[in-house]
Design a protein around this nucleic acid. Structure first.
Length: 558
RNA sequence: UGGCGAAUCGUCCAAUGGCAGGACAUCGGUCUCUGGAUCCGAUAAUCGGGGUUCGACUCCCUGUUCGCCAGCCA
């Protein structure tokens, strides 16, 4: 892959050492999402890490759905997740579902019971909590802790056979109710859930808990390095306990800090709220930090990959400035996106001395950053559209664009001089008039005179109106979750995160492109064709603006 | 208040006892037929207090701050 890591992160160093010591000859990783929502850029960090490491060490990486809780999961998400991983540019070695291991897990649970290391507990959820103690007070043993192996085996089998009500019994590991590590206080291994599972149907009514299931999944697949996020750090002793007591392949869990990004939220729960309460138009709304949202917005997978590489990997909780992500997007698109001229806020420009019936074609450089992209012909006529913002009747200092009597360049075409404007009865400019200098064909004056401004344009006869959706950051607060004033994060939503502009004038040739196509509208930013597009009405998404030092100079215009 | 973990430019990541470096952001300049890109430069940091050492971001002690754990979620 194209990413280059400047320095080794702590995980790669651990793996280096494991290779050097001969502990492992092949590295196996996995990406293990729960199919209960859509993937976002935070998952991309994990995906790039797991698949990236496997590739770098010539190992393997599996995609595994951690579907141990039928209450929250759905097959709908499985397909979306597979799609997103593929789109990000990764291929898994093998595809697995935790539910495929339910038989094996059940068998291993019985083993633990037989070893006297697990028991069926009849405590209610409330009593379980009371017996657990608190962070500072040790727990007490469950009254069911000392049942015989035979009784436990019998009860566990009857749990599996559906003889008991939900919540009436659980299978617990017998560890230490006084441990300062909470998850070691006889953690639950199985709970009763009379719910159909999206893959196993009604076969099971008991389902394994994360801590018991995950280490077994890893071990079964021979995962050498089980990379997960920091909140599982406290679960690691339990992860190791199960593998040790069962005496099966020892996967090693390593935790890294999850991604936080400024001006957005990266938590399934809150993203779901945005979707379900209509703050955005679905999981793939181009303002969403979801993979599907970014894809629809026009962000290239390569930009996401390079972003994940550049932010590094560490154990420190941190928040990456979204400007760094925007930089990655621009950097990638600048090198790859074909250029086009489109006028977002059009005003007619009429060249008084240009023949009515003439059409000239100029060579247009498709991408100045990529010579192999070549050139194409772009049509030029007497009546054009230019950007309304590119004209001022009374221009301030340092305004290089068009104004009465000023000469500017029409990109790749001619130097033109403004001769006047036509206004309607309200004083709005409806048309700008100019003359062209026939000796400046191609955009350069033979006498060497220079103009400071170059404007983009489209031929009125060779362009069509389209809808353009302009996106901005989703929130106007750096950390939307910081609710020191007690307000909900949705009150920090940026009201200007989407503004729709209609009747933008786009070059005719753009009609030949499909949704997903990404290009640069010169001087305006990068734009992608939205799937909402129809042959009658094309819709473009602004992926990201160009850096704009003029706008910066003059503060926020508009 | 028990346990686990983390503290380095504004932000993210390096430096593993030997000149604190890179990227983004910001500011300035160069260049330009995109006020884009490019190129150059500047600003800017080791949480506090002790200790070990010729030498400490790094090791030790101590304090502080932040994160995680008391789901039959993952």
């Amino acid at each position: 892959m194209e990413e280059t890591n400047i320095s080794r992160d702590f995980i790669r160093e651990i793996i280096d050492a494991d290779i050097a010591s001969g502990k492992h000859s092949e590295i196996v990783t996995r990406f293990p999402p729960e199919p209960n929502g859509y993937l976002h850029i935070g998952h991309a960090k994990s995906i790039c890490t797991n698949f990236g490491i496997a590739a770098e060490f010539a190992g393997r990486c599996n995609l595994r759905f951690d579907d141990t809780n039928p209450v929250k999961e759905d097959i709908e998400y499985v397909e979306a997740i597979e799609n997103d991983v593929k789109w990000l540019g990764f291929k898994w070695d093998t595809l697995h579902f935790a539910s495929d291991y339910f038989d094996r897990m059940y068998m291993l649970a019985e083993q633990l019971i037989s070893k006297g290391l697990a028991y069926v507990c009849d405590l209610s959820p409330e009593d379980t909590r009371a017996y657990r103690g608190t962070l500072t007070k040790p727990g007490r043993n469950s009254p069911f802790r000392n049942r015989s192996v035979e009784e436990n085996l019998e009860l566990f089998r009857r749990m599996k056979d559906g003889e008991f009500a939900e919540g009436s019994r659980t299978l617990r590991a017998k560890i230490d109710m006084t441990s300062p590590t909470m998850c070691l206080r006889d953690p639950h291994m199985y709970r009763i859930l009379h719910k159909d599972h999206h893959r196993t149907g009604s076969k099971w009514c008991i389902y394994p808990m994360y801590d018991f299931a995950h280490c077994l999944e890893d071990s079964t697949e021979g995962i050498t390095h089980s990379i997960c996020t920091l909140e599982f750090e406290v679960n690691r002793p339990l992860y190791n306990w199960y593998l040790e007591k069962l005496d099966i392949f020892r996967s090693r869990q390593i935790e890294f800090a999850r991604l936080n990004l400024s001006y957005t939220v990266l938590s399934k729960r809150f993203l779901r709220k945005l979707v379900e309460e209509g703050f955005v138009n679905g999981w793939d709304d181009p303002r969403m930090p979801t993979i599907s949202g970014l894809r629809r917005r026009g962000v290239p997978a390569a930009a996401i990959r390079s972003f994940c590489s550049i932010i590094g990997l560490a154990k420190r909780n941190s928040t990456v400035d979204i400007a760094l992500f925007e930089h990655s997007i621009r950097e990638k698109l600048n090198k790859t996106a074909p250029r086009a001229m489109s006028v977002l806020n059009p005003v007619k420009l009429v060249i008084e001395n240009y023949p009515e019936d003439r059409t000239e074609h100029f060579d247009y450089v498709v991408n100045p950053e990529d010579e192999s992209a070549g050139t194409r012909a772009t049509p030029f006529t007497k009546e054009l559209y230019i950007e309304r913002d590119d004209f001022m009747e009374d221009p301030p200092r340092k305004f290089f664009r068009m104004g009465p009597g000023r000469e500017v360049r029409l990109r790749y075409a001619y130097l033109v001089t403004c001769t006047g404007v036509i206004k309607d009865e309200d004083g709005n400019i409806t048309e700008i008039r100019c003359t062209y200098d026939p000796d400046t064909k191609g955009g350069n004056a033979p006498d060497g005179r220079r103009v400071k401004g170059t404007l983009h344009w489209v031929s009125a006869a060779h362009s069509f109106p389209a809808e353009v959706r302009l996106y901005d950051r989703l929130f106007n607060k750096e950390n939307p979750m910081d609710n020191e004033d007690g307000v909900d994060f949705t009150s920090h939503l940026n009201p200007g995160s989407l503004s729709t502009v209609t009747n933008c004038m786009v070059e005719d040739h753009m009609k030949n492109n499909e949704p997903g196509y990404v290009c640069q509208f010169e001087r305006k930013g990068y734009f992608s064709i939205d799937p909402d597009s129809t042959p009658e009405k094309m819709v473009f998404n602004r992926t990201i603006t160009l850096r704009d030092s003029w706008k910066k100079l003059h503060g926020k215009k508009k």
